[in-house]
Simulated scan of single mutants.
Amino acid sequence: MSKPDSVDLSAFSVPGSGRGILDVFSYGYLLRLLVRKGILTRYHGSVLGWAWSYVKPTAQFFIYYVVMGVFLDLSRGIEAFPIYLFSGIVVVNLFNEAFGNATKSIVNNKALVKKIYLPRELFPIADVFIAFVHFLPQLSILIVVCLIFGWVPTFVQLAGALLAIFIVLLIATGLGLLFGSINVSYRDSQNLVELILMFATWTSPVLYSFTMVRDKLPTWAFDLYMLNPLTSAVELFHSAFWFPTTSEAAERPEHLWFFAGISVVVALVVLLIGQFVFRKLEGRFAQDL
């Protein structure tokens, strides 16, 4: 009996295999659908709708300003304290929303994960994009206020702001992939993420000046503090929005661009680690969900 002719399978791919984040770019249409769905449903059924994107950060700013600026009198040592405060808040808010939502993205989309194959990285990356869209109204408020105070930034300062956004989105994506994959099997990891988000506000110079940290810590400890990607991103935003509205007496961290470059490297390493762990655990997603 003759053997059957072999079938050419070169045009087919192994089900469930892929290239991770790189495959997301092949699903651009689906990514846009996920982002659009997240944006449209964010304030669905609410009276104010998208106005909440302006109301919530404004309310947050006033609370911090009254407590930190008035009651604790920190505004006395920081010129143009309202701009300093709000330019830091918008950066931390972007990180908190992107990282927090990406962590829950796989669990929130379990119906799709269990039924069809697609790059599961689509879900945390879509949530990071959604967080960026919600960040834009806060950024617009900051720009308007800065213009009122005579804001005239340089090209380098604006480039620094763009780099800060890139750092935040990169580190949030990496951490979102890491904790989003772990959260499928171990839901208490979400509690750890909430602790990280709580510390994010206080471990970066948002509510206080970096000089307070520099004056209290030895040089090596302050350098470690500046190596925090979120710290570098906040200071880049301060340099872009706060510094141009102050006098020459205002201080900026030395070697800020050096620390920003290190922060990009750290964020890339976190992204690679997050992708590695995600790829290792995604085979269990459908089962654990």
Rank of each mutant, 00 (worst) to 15 (best):
A161F: 07
Q157V: 01
F155W: 14
W220H: 13
L195M: 12
S181M: 08
E235C: 07
I141G: 08
A126W: 00
L217F: 13
F210H: 13
S185L: 15
P218M: 03
A172W: 07
S204Y: 02
W220C: 01
L142G: 08
S189W: 09
A233D: 04
M198K: 06
V213Y: 02
S239P: 00
L158G: 03
N183Q: 12
W151D: 11
Y208W: 11
G150H: 07
P137V: 02
D127T: 15
T203W: 12
I130W: 00
T231S: 10
I148K: 04
G176R: 08
G176W: 09
W220G: 10
D127L: 11
L147V: 11
A240T: 04
L197Q: 15
E235W: 08
I182P: 03
R187P: 11
T211R: 15
F155L: 14
H238R: 01
V152G: 06
S140Q: 06
E235Y: 08
I141A: 07
D188E: 11
F179T: 03
I130T: 14
S189Q: 05
R187F: 04
L158N: 02
I167K: 03
V184Q: 12
H134R: 04
S140G: 11
A233W: 12
V234H: 03
V234K: 01
A164K: 02
V213A: 15
Y186C: 05
S239L: 06
L230C: 08
L230D: 07
W151E: 09
I130M: 06
T211N: 11
N183R: 09
F199G: 06
D127Y: 12
L170M: 14
I141E: 06
I130L: 02
L178S: 10
C146T: 06
S209T: 11
D127M: 15
T203A: 15
V152D: 09
S232N: 04
Y208T: 09
G174F: 04
T173W: 02
A164V: 00
V184R: 10
A240D: 05
I196L: 15
V156D: 13
L230V: 10
Y186D: 09
G180L: 05
L158W: 05
E235Q: 15
F135Q: 02
L162E: 00
D188Y: 06
T203G: 15
L192D: 03
I141H: 08
F149S: 14
L178H: 10
F149L: 12
V168F: 02
L227W: 06
N183C: 08
A164H: 07
F166S: 10
T219L: 12
S239Y: 13
V184L: 13
A131E: 10
